[in-house]
Design a protein around this nucleic acid. Structure first.
Length: 417
RNA sequence: GUGGGUGUAGCUCAGUUGGUUAGAGCGCCUGGUUGUGGCCCAGGAGGUCGCGGGUUCAAAUCUCGUCACUCACCCCA
């Protein structure tokens, strides 16, 4: 059994579960297209530098979570740990005319070598969107509204939208310096982790849950107050847009995202009840500079963890999507009827019907059991008598009513029911 | 990478202070006279007790190791 188990952190997804995945995918396509986003499918692996350059060399993802390998040509490749970098690479490669904008969404597997836990896999799936190019100021709020629209249609209730700003690229150094100064002054009161973060990633300290650090964090200078006036104005405009769209949000100065490319608006949708993980989706505005490109490419987007959306829907008691079931189940009495039904099944399928049938040539009882279990609303029964009469008995499995129907009319009769 | 919990039938799990043929429910198969599912009844198939050492007359049970699953830390979707 262990030998056939999938690699740790990966899983096999069977039909009943796939039905749930389809809900996520279909809903995404339906909603995102209304906002002008079309699907983009990019490779699951890229040159490693596509990720290291855009996510940032110092981020945890790049430092210890990437599945990297060398291919036969000696190229250093990496299984994508997130979707944005590859999407941006593809759009840049395709070329975006000056002053134009591209809107795409994507969906598919991502890979990170972390220790698996509830809502965290090594091969996990994200559905995300990116608006790239000349991203107008209004896109931040529109994009967030679309995400909340998605949550709503997925019937995920009780989730919360957190909002913050990182300021512009020019804000980053001064803000980090200010935070570093503040926390350095209190370093002796902080936990070991935060002392380490002080040197590696100051902003992460804001996330610390340790009792002793909380007091210090609460007194820390707010990131928003440290921003340049233009950046603060930008953030205020995004908030005003959200108010206009009727989107509820909570400004969380402690919200930090793990990737370096974010600027200005960052947001996260959080939900309690899927283990230790709380983030269902996250995103923001970003800038990525590719080798050979003079200017950074701008974008706004988000990604949602599909496994987590599934868990959240479960926690919200959303009824499971139904799996595909046959429209009709064929039951045969005797070898002649079996042979006739074997051919009939094929014919009905060509007429667009989903047809089930027991191929074991068993007795009628097991066939009827199989018919009932299949969930087919109708059963078609044929024996010698029906064959000579050129009819088939159509049985309604719910009411138990049955009627002889000419075989030539079967497809039509079953299709209308 | 660091810790905790758990590995017994296809699934969910019992298995008493180590004791010989390892159980239940669900599911599956066959029947309950002629060609009718769900309910009920009877019977049946199915297990290297995760794997490998050790202790013992005797190990599913104790011990060590290992692997897997799982939860949490870290971090994130």
């Amino acid at each position: 059994m262990a030998k056939t188990a999938p690699i740790p952190g990966t899983s096999d997804i069977f039909a009943d579960e796939v039905a749930e995945w389809r809900v996520l995918e279909d809903t995404a396509r339906s909603i995102f297209s209304r906002y002008g986003y079309g699907e983009l499918r990019t490779p699951v692996f890229e040159r490693t530098e596509v990720f290291t350059r855009s996510l940032g060399d110092e981020t945890d993802v790049v430092q210890k979570e990437m599945y990297s390998f060398e291919d036969r040509g000696g190229r250093n490749l990496t299984l994508r740990p997130e979707g944005t970098a590859g999407v941006m690479r593809a759009l840049v490669n395709a070329g975006i005319p000056q002053g134009d904008e591209r809107r795409v969404y994507y969906q598919g597997p991502m890979f990170r070598g972390e220790r698996p836990a509830a809502g965290r896999k090594r091969q996990f799936h994200q559905v995300g969107v990116e608006a790239v190019g000349k991203v107008a100021a209004g896109i931040d709020a529109e994009c967030i509204a679309m995400l909340m629209h998605y949550m709503e249609d997925l019937e995920i209730t009780g989730c919360k939208l957190l909002l913050n700003s990182r300021g512009s690229a020019e804000d980053r150094a001064p803000v980090a310096a200010a935070l570093h100064d503040y926390f350095a002054a209190h370093s002796d009161e902080m936990c070991d982790d935060c002392q380490r973060r002080l040197e590696t990633n100051v902003s992460r300290i804001m996330d610390c849950k340790t009792e002793g650090c909380r007091g210090i964090i609460d007194q820390a200078p707010g990131v928003l107050e440290l921003l340049k006036p233009e950046s603060a104005d930008y953030f205020a405009a995004v908030c005003a847009d959200l108010d206009r769209l009727g989107i509820a949000y909570e400004i969380d100065p402690r919200l930090v995202r793990g990737l370096d490319y974010y600027v200005h608006t960052v947001f996260e949708v959080v939900f309690d009840g899927i283990g230790a993980q709380t983030a269902l989706a996250g995103g923001g505005r970003y800038e990525i500079t590719f080798p050979g490109q003079k200017r950074p490419v701008l974008g706004v987007g988000f990604a949602a963890g599909m496994e987590r959306l599934l868990l959240a829907r479960e926690a919200c008691k959303v009824p499971a999507a139904s799996v595909d079931q046959p429209d009709v189940f064929l039951v045969s009495l005797g070898d002649d009827a079996f042979d006739a039904n074997f051919a009939l099944a094929q014919q009905l399928r060509r007429n667009g019907l989903a047809v089930g049938m027991d191929l074991e040539r068993r007795g009628m009882k097991p066939q009827m059991r199989a018919a009932g279990k299949s969930g087919a609303p109708y059963t078609v029964i044929r024996g010698e008598q029906e064959l000579t009469d050129g009819v088939a008995v159509v049985k309604n499995m719910e009411t138990g009513d049955q009627q002889p129907v000419p075989v030539t009319d079967l497809a039509a009769v079953l299709s209308t029911n």
